[in-house]
Design a protein around this nucleic acid. Structure first.
Length: 460
DNA sequence: GGAACTCGCCAC
DNA sequence: AAACGTGGCGAGTTCC
């Protein structure tokens, strides 16, 4: 499998992107070294406490007894052996090599208090050893300089390392705060962030020219629509907290996985997990609602006893999704797959060619993923150019696939905000005339001297 | 004692 | 018939 620039424009994008990223890497991001050290200590205390509690429990003693070597709470190998070979529990999942799984979902499903403690401990270890440690290890004079690579990803996205700046916790509130409160703009400055709304789906619109997909992306709300179908709701109010969860479920439990090539079986299970947290606006828990609709049967303790009907239902929704709602998209997939099989490659609008051995999912995903990132890359290059031409103090310093962060001088905030929004939504579609759906962005900022955890939505 | 592999988890 | 796309990285384990 190989993707390569096929036109001079594509080559220029890589060349200029590399130079713009190099300037961002050189600028770097300020970190609070004292904070990192202090939080590391606090985390270590909490980890030690949890460790002690687990080791002193009956569960811990039995585990210790089962292993020939010294007990190590961080060893999934030991844990798997203890749970499934010694205690003879039934693993809900097995790994590729056939051992009983010890991932979060499997362990929490066993409902053993010590395992819940262990999971808490693992979470804290991850924060301490993967993020705070990396910041301290990589910092030079209070700045980290994450690298952004353009030569490592099959789809011609970017990657980041030393430290990886593209996977810092966001969804888990506690992990997000602990990690992102380490990151600051230069003193007296503020963060400004811009991200493209649904850029991959918009690329899908452009390649497939599916009218329904275009309509839903520009005017509609497909995540809400799908949540309504999947959970058999009459309506959904995304400003109601219980129903907002269900919309999230529609998005992360169905729409995105389906676009990436997943199928109804996995989606149904994921949707039921989400349903545990969701409520209808009258307060009915979603699982009860699904039981009332005859889609599942519940045990007395509230867990799911039977989900056959629900899986059948999700299968039907999937069928409608691909063969009715987005049937033009589906036709495009078949056509593109056929074309690839004949020619041995597929071209992106940005002048890159993907060739070599690919399966159908790859062939129908890579163009969207790569092209979406190239929109960000083009934008980043233009921001960098503008910065140098107009002698900004502000500096673009990082990007995460569809988002760029600028360490911004407060006097320049208005001008920089307007400039980057204009570049992304006006100049980009003018430069690339194949972009025939509107592009949209969201802006976030912090106040002066606030951390990256404090970013808030704002309008110019 | 380092390379390679496995598992798990973070992001888009 | 089968069944999730792209990465980086830490810790444990096994291989050489």
């Amino acid at each position: 499998m190989l993707i390569h620039p096929k036109t001079k424009e594509a080559y220029q994008l890589l060349h200029q992107g590399t130079l713009a990223f190099a300037r961002a890497e050189q600028a770097g991001m300020r970190i609070d070294v004292d904070y990192c050290q202090q939080k590391k200590e606090e985390l270590t205390n909490r980890i030690n406490q949890l460790e002690k509690e687990i080791l002193n429990s009956k569960f811990g003693k039995r585990w210790q007894h089962s292993t020939k070597s010294k007990i190590n709470l961080n060893s999934n190998y030991q844990l798997s052996y203890f749970l499934y070979n010694v205690q003879k529990l039934e693993p809900a999942k097995v790994t590729i090599t056939g051992k009983g799984s010890t991932d979060d979902e499997t362990l929490s499903g066993l409902r053993i208090p010590e395992l819940d403690k262990l999971l808490e401990m693992k979470k804290l270890l991850k924060i301490r050893d993967t993020y705070l440690d990396a910041f301290l290890r990589e910092q030079v004079k209070g700045f980290i300089h994450p690298f952004f690579n353009l030569h490592l990803v099959r789809t011609f996205r970017s990657s980041s390392d030393r430290p990886n700046f593209q996977n810092i916790p966001k969804r888990d509130k506690e992990a997000m705060q602990l990690c992102r409160k380490a990151l600051y703009p230069r003193k007296g400055n503020q963060f400004l962030a811009m991200d493209f709304s649904g850029i991959e789906v918009r690329m899908a619109c452009i390649y497939t020219q599916d009218e329904k997909l275009i309509y839903d992306t520009v005017h509609g709300d497909m995540h809400k629509d799908m949540a309504i179908e999947l959970y058999m709701l009459d309506s959904l109010d995304k400003h109601n907290s219980g129903e907002a969860v269900l919309r999230q479920a529609g998005k992360n439990g169905f729409v995105f996985p389906e676009f990436y090539g997943d199928y109804y079986g996995n989606c149904a299970l994921s949707l039921l997990k989400w349903a545990e947290q969701g409520k209808l606006k009258d307060g009915t828990p979603c699982l009860i609602h699904l039981q009332d609709k005859g889609l599942i049967k519940l045990n007395k303790n509230g867990t799911v006893k039977n989900n056959d009907k629900f899986i059948e239902h999700v299968k039907h929704v999937e069928d409608m999704f691909w063969n009715e709602r987005y049937k033009i998209y589906t036709k495009w997939k078949d056509k593109t797959w056929g074309l690839y099989q004949k020619k041995g490659y597929i071209d992106m609008y940005t002048g890159f060619r993907c060739s070599g051995l690919m399966n159908k999912k790859d062939v129908t995903n890579y163009p969207f993923q790569g092209t979406a990132f190239h929109c960000l890359l083009w934008t980043f290059i233009e921001i960098d150019k503008r910065m140098r031409k107009e002698n900004w103090d502000s500096r673009p310093i990082s990007q995460v696939h569809d988002e760029v962060t600028v360490d911004t001088h407060p006097d320049e905030l208005q001008h920089v905000s307007k400039s980057i929004k204009n570049i992304a939504t006006k100049e980009l579609p003018e430069a690339w005339d194949w972009i025939n759906v509107p592009l949209d962005v969201e802006l976030e900022k912090t106040k002066v001297d606030e951390s990256w955890a404090d970013k808030k939505y704002f309008e110019i």
